[in-house]
Structure formats: C-alpha cells, structure tokens
Amino acid sequence: MKAMKILGVIAAAVIFLFVVLQARIDLVFPEGLEEIIERTNIPNAVTAIYLETRLYDTIFEVIVFSITALGVTTLFSSLPRSAEGSQQVFGSVTVYSGGLAALSVTLFLYVVLEGHISPGGGFVGGVVLATGIVTYGLTSNFAKANSHYDRFKIKIMENASLLIIFSLVSFIVFFPETHARLLASGEFGEVLSGGLIPVLNILIGIKVYAGAWKMSSEFINRRGTL
C-alpha cells in the first residue's frame, strides 16, 4: 500500500514535470493595451478589462458569488446556532477594533471611488470592508455587529445593488455606442470619468461586502464548541 502511494506521487510528479517542460513560457500575447485604454479612456487597464471588454466574465462572477451566499445561508439554516453569551470581550481590543472598522470604511471608499484611476476596484474594496467589520464583530461584540447589519438594512442593499448591477450591465451590453460616448466625454484620469464604471465599482463593492459579511456571520454563528 505504501509502495503504491510512493509510486503514485512519483507518477504525478513526472506528469507535472512533463507539462512544465512542454509549456511555451515565451509565448507572446497580442498587444492590446493602447487600444483598451483609448477605448475606455481610464488609466487602470485591469478595471477597463473586467468592467468593459470582458464584462460577461464579471457578471457571471457576481452571479456565482450571490449563489454561494444564498447556498451558505440555506445549507446552514438547518444547523443549530451557538450560544450568544459564550463570546469573550476584552476592553482595549474593543476600542482598537472600532478604530480599525472606521479605517476600513475610509479605505473602502478610497479603493472603490478611485478604482478606475489607481489600483483597486469593487471586489478589493468589498473584501477590505468585510475584513474590517468581521474583525470588529469577532473582537468586540458579535451581537452588536449583527444589529448594525439589521439597522443599515444591508440585506435590502445587497439585493438592490445586484438588481442595479444587472440593469447597468444590460444597458452597457445592449447600447455600447451610448456607453462609448459616455466614456469619451470624461476627463482622462479624473475621479468623475469612465462612464458607468465607477458606479459599477461601488455597487460591486457593496455586494461583495454584504455577501462576505453574511457568509462569515453564518460561520461564526455556528462555530460549535469554540
């Protein structure tokens, strides 16, 4: 049995080495950076690709993310919740995590609003905000963080942002000339440019934040004996 395992590992290593030696690493991709930048009129080429030239990828990605959030909530709904009072809270950590949450909100706004002219974007911003809020919930008070989730109506915001993302994306897909005119009218390198791309970035940020926070809160609510 042990010899079979070792033989299998050697066989897998040989197959991988074969693949590595076969790969042509010096393959040159077609030059398209100049065309993409001229077409979208925004400096960040990565944002230009995933929100303009490869928009279908992004929309299916958002759909997969929503379905995962839905699936995690649905699958977890049959499992028992952990007791609310079992969380230990330390005073100084509470103060620091509140400050960190405020900082992460600021960073979220910066990353999302400047996602088309500097490194960043909707997905990164959403993960930044979710990390800050989950740290706050874990270290200070989880019931309080959950009450924030209910008070700001984040569930409604998540679904509304998904609907608006779908409508804006279908607008871009069905009326590409109108969006191209919108893109060309903005000043290159300004915050208020890029047509619908900053709006899509903000909405994707809210969507990713709400989905990630919902999934993490489900995991923390059913943490078992921890």
Binding site: L33, P43, I117, F123
Partner: peptide, 27 residues
C-alpha cells in the same frame, strides 16, 4: 503595474491575466 499615464513607451505588465484571475479569486 498597468496603470497608464498616457505614456505607452514603458513596458507594462500584461493586464489580461490579472483581470481574468480576479474572477478566479472570487470563484
């Protein structure tokens, strides 16, 4: 990083694999 300031003479990193892998990270 492919953040262009209007100067195309610099060799930038290829943005297409980066944009593709954003999808891969979320998946």
């Amino acid at each position: 990083p492919p953040i262009v300031n209007g100067d195309f003479s610099i060799a930038y990193a290829d943005p297409v694999p980066q944009a593709v892998i954003i999808t891969g990270i979320v998946i």
